[in-house]
Design a protein around this nucleic acid. Structure first.
Length: 606
DNA sequence: GGCTGCGAGACTCG
DNA sequence: TCACGAGTCTCGCAGCC
């Protein structure tokens, strides 16, 4: 039975007669952004009865929201949502913060069950419930008061309820229930927090950075064009008066092809379509050439300015904070994805250029920013996943793993105790074998996690394929359990067409696809790392709630890093507890050490 | 001639 | 054939008016 409710009186009568102790829930609202967001209505369904309560421009709006708050406080014991962080965020904006922690996000459930397909409610309803959804243009539904719209809104709650029933059963069948209920569902509240909190942006510093970057871009552009005898002119922008660079010739691939060939620089790299490539690889290849170096610097500044500096203001809300969208279901491995803006790709400070983009993300007066990131997280997980005693004991002893791998691959003959980072000779050795350590790290340790080949290593490190193969053989001889683990994963994939992390997260892959074996092994590491950060967030969130005087806010997650904002008076008390919670977030045979940075802005905290 | 949508390629991060 | 996981920008092409 479907009922549309438009008055407070009817609402009281309806909820007096109908029970929604366990229900599907969905909200309609005016905006996706927390700052401008206002709930216009909500729907509830218990599978038999479904209702929509229209509160948009309703004279009793306040009382109706109050009644909903009361329902959540004393009646609704558990509820399902499709994309829980969003609905929780809407409730939070309406002051409804006291909700059951027994939630069920059908979107995340589906991601665990079927990581390879789409997770939209309409798609899932079509696929699993055999219905034909009506689609509305999101902008046009706002404030619509028609039966057609009420039906549309009610279906969302009903379908969410029905999908919960289906998915719940399946989660138990596939042994994903613990991951779902103990890790994923508590984590929905962290995602809600982050999307409410956002990060404060210093718009004045951003403007300074824009002016600095624009001037550098113009300077580099002029040098490149003059060097290449290409005509250009400078003219003031009609509105701002700022100098604009104008030329008929753009630095397209075709132009670059001519300019490189004119200098006798023939690139060995090609694009997928077979055309000569003038990307980063080529620029590194010809490093030292004046023209190429200018071009490399130009590309960095151009990207920074175009993709980050000038785009950021459109994401900053009126309160000066940017609230990105984090997607729990964005990556097949279980990692989070982030968009609008993507806080996980903020440019780092570059060696050759002075721009420091991260400094514009800051905290208000009286607060500090704390960045906590796992050190060598994936390598440590490799040790755990491969059950490799050599790696595990090296980590426990505090050995520099990159130097240790270099020691093996290049047969440097360094005694193990001298590779412990606290050993008096360690720093000198690290400096002496800087190049070998670099290859150990970027040529072996990380690429092995990705499943690379001798070809990949030779290309990456500028050594021959033969040398690379010798290195790989030495690597696997030194860490035999890693080789066994890779083989075991591959065999398991071939037999079962899927693999699972230690947290039981599943990834299905076609073993006939050659790439799938690399993806499978990498998933064991990347997927576990993703669940570790969830466990860490859940643990720290609890501690923060127990210590309200810390005013602890989670404001960013960047794969192996959590960024907090908190009361600067409380860091001495809070930091050791946060550190301990994160290092022991999961019960593993190895503690996962973290590195902590505290400052007033993101650049300083990194 | 100009607009729009789309995919490729290049870049950003862990 | 050759290194895992993402998002976003610009460019060039196809299709259309």
């Amino acid at each position: 039975m479907k009922t549309a409710i438009t008055t407070y009186k009817d609402m009281i009568a309806y909820f007096g007669e109908h029970s929604f102790k366990t229900c599907g829930f969905d909200t309609e609202c005016t905006s996706l952004d927390y700052f401008d967001l206002e709930m216009t209505g909500f729907s509830l369904s218990n599978g038999v009865d479904t209702c929509y309560v229209d509160i948009y421009k309703n004279k009793d709006r306040k009382a109706m929201v109050g009644l909903l708050k009361e329902l959540f406080r004393s009646h609704i014991k558990s509820f399902a949502m499709h994309n829980a962080p969003f609905d929780l965020k809407v409730l939070h904006k309406e002051g409804i913060t006291e909700v059951s922690d027994k939630i069920f996000c059908t979107m995340t459930a589906h991601h665990l069950l079927n990581e390879n397909s789409q997770h939209g409610l309409k798609e899932l309803a079509t696929k699993y419930l055999d219905v034909v959804p009506v689609t509305f243009d999101n902008a046009s539904v706002r404030g619509m008061k028609t039966q057609e719209f009420y039906d549309y809104a009610m279906n969302d709650a009903l379908w969410t309820f029905q999908l919960m029933k289906l998915f719940n059963k399946k989660l138990y069948e596939l042994d994903l229930n613990r991951l779902f209920f103990e890790v994923e569902m508590p984590f929905q509240f962290t995602l809600m927090d982050m999307m409410i909190n956002g990060v404060q942006v210093n718009l004045e510093e951003l403007e300074e950075l824009r002016i600095e970057a624009a001037a550098t871009k113009l300077k580099l552009q002029r040098e490149i064009y003059e060097m290449s005898n290409i005509g250009y002119s400078l003219q003031p922008d009609m509105f701002t008066g700022e100098v604009e660079f104008v030329s008929k010739v753009k630095l397209s691939n075709q132009t670059l092809d001519k300019l490189f060939k004119k200098r006798g620089l023939v690139t060995p790299y090609k694009t997928k379509t077979g055309a000569p490539s003038y990307g980063a690889e080529t620029l590194v290849h010809f490093e030292g050439n004046e023209f190429v170096d200018l071009l490399a610097q130009f590309n960095i500044v151009d990207k920074l300015l175009g993709a980050f500096i000038v785009k950021l203001p459109q994401h900053v809300a009126k309160d000066g904070r940017v609230r990105a969208a984090y997607w729990n279901t964005g990556a097949k491995t279980g990692r989070l994805s982030c968009a609008e803006p993507n806080m996980q790709q903020l440019p780092k400070k570059k060696k050759k250029l002075t721009f420091d983009y991260k400094r514009i993300f800051e905290v208000p007066e009286g607060k500090v920013m704390i960045s906590v990131d796992y050190s060598g997280q994936e390598l440590r997980i490799l040790g755990v996943v491969a059950k490799c005693p050599i790696l595990i004991s090296a980590f426990k002893a505090g050995v520099d793993l990159h130097l240790m791998t270099a020691n093996i691959v290049f047969q440097l003959g360094i005694p193990e105790e001298k590779m412990i980072t606290t050993h008096p000779e360690y720093e000198a050795l690290k400096e002496k074998y800087e190049h070998e350590r670099y290859i150990g790290k970027n040529g072996y340790n990380f690429p092995i996690i990705y499943g690379t080949t001798s070809y990949g290593i030779s290309k990456n490190c500028g050594i021959s394929e033969k040398e690379a193969q010798v290195g790989i053989d030495r690597f696997f001889s030194a860490y035999p359990n890693v080789r066994t683990a890779i083989q075991r994963t591959s065999d398991f994939l071939r037999d079962n067409w899927h693999v699972r992390t230690l947290t039981r997260r599943r990834r299905r892959l076609n073993p006939d696809d050659k790439k799938s074996h690399r993806q499978a092994f990498n998933f064991l590491i990347q997927g576990l790392a993703a669940d570790m950060i969830r466990c860490a967030c859940n643990k720290v969130r609890k501690i923060g709630i127990d210590n309200p005087h810390w005013e602890l806010k989670q404001i960013m997650i960047v794969h192996d890093e959590i960024v907090f904002e908190m009361n600067e008076q409380c860091t001495d008390e809070a930091v050791p507890k946060i550190k301990d919670a994160m290092e022991t977030a999961m019960n593993l045979p190895l503690r996962m050490p973290v590195e902590i940075g505290i400052a007033k802005n993101y650049s300083g905290a990194k």
